Amino acid sequence: MRGLKGKRVILTGGGSGIGAATCRRFAEEGAHVFVFDLDGNAARETASAIQQGGGEAGAFEVDITNRDAVFSAVEDVSGGGPVDVLVNNAGWDRLVPFIESDTDLWTRVIDINLYGPLHMHHAVLPLMKKQRHGRVVNIASDAGRVGSSGEAVYSACKGGIIAFTKTMARELARSGIQLNAVCPGPTDTPLFSSFAEGETGDKIKTALEKAIPMGRLAQPGDFPGIVCFLASDDAGFITGQTISVSGGLTMSG
């Protein structure tokens, strides 16, 4: 893709799943990747794999719910050059019907899935505005577009990220900054495995595979292409858009 070589990319949740796969793809495109993850060892593993393949990468152990930690890590990155691309990928949830959930769960889900990306935007967008260019790709979820049983608060957060992305795209379009959202459908990641274990988990997976027109769950490798495209020069006139990657499960606009 055009325009990614030499770009400096911050990606949260880059230690596993979609994040790790996307970090590797950015590196393949010639970008310098900064892997942010709560699990420092996982971040270092992703960065090391990129370096061993001849790419450029650095690892940062960052809790995105901690505003000070976010600003400190972003400052470390920006001290060496511009932040050209931000990918907000980190997320977490636990499958619980809303009326059986409690405020402790709500707080954790909101802190990670809403406040975390807000912290990242607040740290990075002023830098992008000053340099008059930047791309942000927010990994939202189809749960935020059409809802998802057992994920009420998570869905609310992801719906909020979609609306936030559109709003910031409007606010910053004349500043040379483009923001778009990618919405994964059900994906075979460690997060999915954490609440799809045992016999019940097998039933959930089978039901989803039957419901998805393409007949399978998404894999982490299904997402790096669209994320890198939106960060590339090939997407130079695209902003404020929400793109579903769900194997056809959700086809509504």
Rank of each mutant, 00 (worst) to 15 (best):
V227N: 13
G116C: 08
L38P: 00
D111A: 11
A90H: 02
L127Q: 06
Q52A: 08
D233I: 14
R44E: 15
T250E: 04
G14P: 00
E29S: 01
F26A: 04
E197T: 13
G14E: 01
E197D: 12
Q241F: 02
R108H: 05
F164Y: 15
F237G: 12
R8T: 07
G53Q: 05
L172T: 14
L38T: 05
G176R: 14
D68T: 03
Y154D: 15
V77W: 00
K5G: 03
S148A: 15
R108W: 03
G6M: 04
C23E: 02
P213N: 11
E151D: 13
N66M: 06
L118P: 00
G14W: 01
A140N: 11
D84T: 03
G14L: 06
A218H: 08
M168N: 11
A47S: 08
G81L: 09
A123K: 06
A156N: 13
H122P: 00
E61H: 10
N88Y: 06
D39P: 02
K129L: 12
R67F: 07
S232C: 10
S141N: 07
S175N: 11
G236F: 12
G134D: 08
E209N: 15
L179A: 09
A235W: 05
H32L: 05
K205Y: 02
S252R: 09
L4K: 03
G144E: 10
M214P: 13
T65M: 05
T242V: 14
I64D: 05
W92S: 01
F34E: 11
I226K: 12
T189M: 04
S148F: 05
T46Q: 03
V153R: 14
R25V: 08
P190F: 06
E28L: 09
A152Y: 10
A173C: 15
G55W: 05
F195G: 11
F229H: 13
S252L: 14
L86N: 06
T167E: 13
N66F: 08
F237H: 14
H122L: 08
G55Y: 07
V245H: 10
F36Q: 01
D111L: 01
R94V: 09
W106R: 04
P97N: 04
G176F: 02
A123S: 07
A152K: 11
S194L: 11
K7T: 02
R2A: 02
F98V: 06
V182M: 09
V74G: 03
R135F: 08
G54Y: 06
M1P: 06
G53Y: 01
A196D: 08
C183K: 05
G40F: 04
F192H: 13
C157R: 09
